[in-house]
Design a protein around this nucleic acid. Structure first.
Lengths: 111, 111
DNA sequence: TCCATTAGTTCTATAATACAGAACAATTGG
DNA sequence: CCAATTGTTCTGTATTATAGAACTAATGGA
C-alpha cells in the first residue's frame, strides 16, 4: 500500500482544482471539511445526501481531492484525518477558492 | 440538425462551469473569447497550442462550453460566431469567473 | 501473542464518457 | 444547382468512473 501523496503547493494546478470540484460528492466533502473546525475521517461521508456510496468509490474521491492539493490526509491509528489546505491555497490562488465555495453555497440556498 | 441550446441564466450551474473549465483546450478557447473584442469562429481554434485538433472534437468542446452557459454561439452564414456570457455570469456568480481566469493567467505566466 | 474488528486501499469487471475519422447538414458564392 | 466551407452527428475505440471483492494496516481485547 503506497503512502498517500500530497502535491507541494507549487505543483497544484487550477485545472486539477476545478476538475476535483466539478463533482457534487467531492464538493460536499470539501465544503464540510472547510466548515469543520477539526479533521474528519473518510467514513463520515459514506452517506452523502442520502445516497449510499461504496467505500471504494469514496476512497477514489478522497484520492482525487488529495492529489488535486485540496485536502491533506493524515493517518491517525486506523483512520485518516482529513482537513483542507485552504490557507496554503489562498496564498497561491488568491480568492478563487472562496469565490467557488461561495457560489456553490448561494446555489444551494436558492434551490 | 438540432438548434444550438443555450441554458437560461438561472439554469447554469457552478458544477457545469467548473467542469467545462477543467480542460486546457476549453480554457484556452474561453480565455481567447474573453479577451477578444469581437466574436470568433470555431475553426479559429483548430490549432490550439500547436496541437492539431479534430474538428469533431473541437465541436464537442464548444458544445460543452455552450451548454455550461459559458459562451453564446450565433449562426452567421456558414460559420458560428462565439462570444462569452461573462456579463450575465457575473450577475449570477459574482467574482468566481474572474477569479478562475486570473488564477489560470497567473499560472500560465509562472510556467 | 493472536485473533477479530475497523478503516481505507487496491484489484477487477462493467458502465459511462472522450476522442477522432467519416458521413452528413446547412449556408453561400459562382 | 453545384462546389466549397463550416460545423454537427454518427460510429467505433480508448480512457475514465463506479462498485463489489479481496487485501492491507493498525488497534483492542481474550
Amino acid at each position: 500500500m503506497r503512502p498517500l501523496y500530497h502535491p507541494p503547493l507549487d505543483e497544484i494546478t487550477v485545472q486539477g482544482i476545478l476538475y476535483a470540484l466539478s463533482d457534487p460528492v467531492r464538493v460536499r466533502i470539501f465544503t464540510q471539511l472547510a466548515r469543520a473546525d477539526c479533521a474528519k475521517t473518510c467514513s463520515e461521508f459514506l452517506h452523502v445526501r442520502k445516497k449510499p456510496l461504496a467505500k471504494s468509490t469514496l476512497s477514489q474521491h478522497f484520492k482525487i481531492l488529495r492529489e488535486a492539493g485540496l485536502i491533506r490526509s493524515e493517518r491517525m491509528g486506523v483512520e485518516l484525518h482529513n482537513s483542507t489546505r485552504c490557507a496554503e491555497l489562498k496564498k497561491r490562488f488568491g480568492p478563487m477558492l472562496d469565490a467557488i465555495l461561495r457560489a456553490y453555497e448561494l446555489e444551494a440556498r436558492s434551490s
